[in-house]
């Protein structure tokens, strides 16, 4: 079983957790924006099987802690690399030393993008005011379509990474995510009302 660095290749014993491994390295994946979701999943499952706390339910406290640390990190790797926005931002921070989505980076400045986001939000508020479920679905589909476009642009941009080109894309995507979360929240509020 391929378990990466977590198990000793000779004796199969769980090794001390190595926090210096990147999220790509821990999964044995090449570092890059484009990832095959199936390969990511199988790499993660293979490693999780080997290090998961369920395998060490009877082990000593130290081994259990190591298992917990490896598994926690594998879960993080799967979550971050499995989401193209988080993957993009993780790669950005690997290249440029900080997240593109933190406060230090400032926010969206492109007036055209800002305008689009404002219009979108107005449309959402209008639809929400009259509980127009179909309009909500339409807005959600549009946002998903734009996410796809941004993902493609990011894939192209990461071939020769430039902070000034990548950061705005990630920030715009972050806006879209917040917008999608708002749609969910409206639906949830109606549901639980």
């Amino acid at each position: 079983m391929e378990a990466g660095a977590a198990l000793c290749p000779q004796c199969g014993a769980l090794q001390p957790f190595d926090p210096s491994l990147s999220l790509f390295a821990i999964l044995g994946l090449a570092e890059g924006f484009v990832i095959d979701p199936a390969a990511l999943r199988s790499a993660a499952l293979e490693r999780l099987r080997a290090v998961h706390p369920d395998r060490f339910a009877q082990a000593d406290g130290r081994t259990q802690r190591q298992s917990l640390e490896w598994t926690t990190r594998l879960n993080e790797a799967q979550a971050v690399l499995g989401d193209p926005l988080r993957r993009g931002d993780y790669l950005f921070s690997r290249h440029f030393g900080q997240s593109a989505l933190g406060e230090e980076m400032g926010s969206l400045r492109d007036p055209e993008v800002l305008m689009r986001q404002m219009e979108r939000r107005e449309a959402l508020e209008e639809a929400a005011a009259v509980r127009d479920q179909a309009a909500l679905e339409r807005l959600r589909a549009e946002a998903h379509a734009e996410e796809k476009q941004i993902e493609e642009q990011l894939a192209a941009s990461f071939t020769a990474p430039e902070a000034g080109r990548i950061a705005p894309l990630l920030q715009e995507w972050q806006y879209l995510r917040k917008f999608l979360a708002e749609i969910d929240q409206y639906e949830e509020r109606w549901d639980f009302a």
């Binding site: 499952l45 999780l48 099987r49 998961h52 369920d54 339910a57 009877q58």
Partner: peptide
């Protein structure tokens, strides 16, 4: 049963 090591099946619960 899996947790006490009676089974060798690869059961993985996440």
């Amino acid at each position: 049963d899996a947790l006490v090591g009676n089974q060798s099946d690869d059961l993985l619960l996440m």
